[in-house]
Design a protein around this nucleic acid. Structure first.
Lengths: 139, 139
DNA sequence: ATTAATTTAGTTGCGCACAATTAAATAGTG
DNA sequence: CACTATTTAATTGTGCGCAACTAAATTAAT
């Protein structure tokens, strides 16, 4: 087998599926007027009311070079507030606005819609997820 | 189960693994002085000596907005040549330079190195690949 | 043959990703 | 306490990714 062939590479499949998923989210998130990376931040905010940029970065595997401008855009949309910690001014604490909190209701149906669009069984869904997560654990 | 939790979403796993893989390639491809998307183009060129931008786009699921500047960078590195088709001047035909062709040898070990870095079994590798490819087929 | 529709790349603009650097605040050490 | 090291965000620069639009060439239809 030719390992230098696109069709034989897992990496390309991951890359292609990742962009495919982002495009599925693009149409679904249009209504919320946010992008997929912004949605990921909102997912965290809906679970944890107060998070630093560092903590967001740890959970999303993203650095401040990506997060700082992204968070500024979410702030402009008035979904979040960014403010320096009073106790440690190196940290920036992110909290939800009332508007941001209210968006959670509109987002509830998104996972189900994405799942339907993927067009796979629940078994496949969790099988793929577990195997990918094991790659992340090994890194 | 809370479907609005990051940890329960296949999509985030795909997104995270995709970026992880790109970062693995980044260090390996440093030697060839190309990026991962540029490497994907080179993979195709090494198999097919003459390809149009449209054909590259079909195989990589990328449009001209991404490919045109990427191909210009590969041309600046003198790995490829871009020229309008004589028979249909709407098309741009991409071919390898001698330098570009010669890089194939240096790239031969890359798939094996990436596989080792992923730290999974061949069975897992092909299992994940097949399941992801079925998602792409369903789209 | 003329006009209309389609195909193909290129351009522009925006939002990630991420490396590398900078700046400020805090923690650690003698 | 001084001063060094570490932590944390922000900034800068490069390269995707993709939507929307433009321009040019080709094809189809009348």
């Amino acid at each position: 087998m030719n390992k230098l062939a696109l069709s034989n590479q897992l990496c390309f499949s991951v890359y292609a599926v990742s962009r495919h998923i982002t495009s599925l989210y693009r149409s679904i998130l249009e209504e919320l007027d946010i992008t997929y990376p912004q949605y990921l931040v909102m997912l965290i905010m809906w679970e944890q009311s107060e998070v630093t940029v560092k903590q967001l970065g740890e959970q999303l595997y993203l650095d401040s070079g990506t997060l700082t401008p992204l968070l500024k855009r979410l702030e402009q949309k008035e979904l979040i507030i960014r403010e320096r910690s009073k106790t440690d001014e190196r940290s920036v604490i992110v909290t939800l606005t009332e508007l941001g909190r209210s968006k959670r209701e509109h987002a509830k149906c998104i996972p189900e819609n994405i799942f339907k669009a993927l067009n796979i069984s629940p078994e496949e869904y969790y099988s793929i997820k577990n195997q990918l997560d094991s790659i992340l654990k090994n890194k």
